[in-house]
Amino acid sequence: MSILSKVLFGVGIIQLLHAGFSSYEFHQLLKSSTNINESSNEQKLYQLPNDIKLEVFISLAILTVSIFLSFNKLKYYPINNKNDEIITEGEYLSNIQMSKASNVDNLVGSDPTGYITYLPNMVDIQAKRKEVAEYLKTI
């Protein structure tokens, strides 16, 4: 979360709490009032003031913006080479379209169906050990 989004989030929350407190105060005032006239003109006076409503809407807008600003660009870690640089496509949210969502696997160098295509249960253990042992002799 960046500093800007944190500041906006704080302002939004304070504003929302202030609007809630103002609304509470207003209702307390109404309850204490004894001469309630039933005429329609006076009834309008007992509705929640517009400035409190406006304060709520503005605080919600600020909170929404602050949450969007809190997103960081998605980063991916290549798996084959641990010293490889971290990859980013400059996007803040994951894609939901399959052709683009599967790009993450391509970017990190992973085959998502490797548990089938690598034939992990049919590995020739002896050959693998021999290959590694020959390599270890050379280092």
């Binding site: 548990y115 992990p120 020959e134």
Partner: peptide
């Protein structure tokens, strides 16, 4: 998950 380790070079 992908069982990549079964295919890696020494």
């Amino acid at each position: 998950l992908t069982k990549l380790y079964t295919q890696l070079e020494p």
